[in-house]
Amino acid sequence: SIKDSVKLCNFNCSQSQGITVQAIDDSRVLLIALKIDAGSFQEFRCDKDLVLGLDLESLSKILKQGNNEEYLTLMAEDSPDNLMAVFEDKKKDRISEFSLKLMDIDSDVLTIDDMETDCTITLPAYEFAKIAKDMKTLSESLKIVVTKDSVKFNAEGQIGTGSVILKPHTDMDKPEESVKIELNSPVALTFGAKYLNDIVKATSLSSTVTIKLTDKSPALFEYKLPSGYLRYYLAPKFDD
């Protein structure tokens, strides 16, 4: 989900935190925070805190070698040069092994404090993905305007304008289809459509996305994982 936004990332491994990643895209506009709790794995062991510097394109090449029904084990030694990936198909007694070279990656770590939020929107992830993709064809920017009754996505481009308005509703049968708006104060923020389209690449990871917006602050787009999260912090565009 994140390999089109960032190329090199440090994966921090620890027994208590599981795997955490913080990465900033090259244009310094988008910050990605990933947390995969130890409980997400069938087995997780980390005797010593470890930083694995990975090239995501290379990692993706290795991960594509496995089939969906195969078990994947990732292993690194104490001061590793390589990450080992072992795929096992227990039915077929098939084992494939790969080793991926690790890299020393210099990266600034930013402190993300808990932010006060003006509003929180939860909507189906596929719905947000469709809006982001459709609106990008109209404009480089997407404005999100939230009031207590609705959230409006607005694009103004060369060929014309477009908007999608969602009103809060609760779907009793399929809660993940609901649209929720929690509002402290109304907000209107503009974001680069390109970055929103990078963010929605995480759509398959979660049925819903939660968007937290605050005036003159980065927006938080959160995809909850079964045990952990993938968060994107996106800096807004400002008027001159």
Binding site: I24, S27, R28, V29, L30, L31, D108, V109, L110, T111, I112, E140, S141, T190, G192, S217, P218, Y233, L234, A235, P236, K237, F238, D239, D240
Partner: peptide, 14 residues
């Protein structure tokens, strides 16, 4: 078009 801001303006480096 509005100019894009940088994420680092909002979060301090540790």
């Amino acid at each position: 078009n509005k100019p894009q801001t940088s994420i680092e303006e909002f979060f301090p480096v540790e």
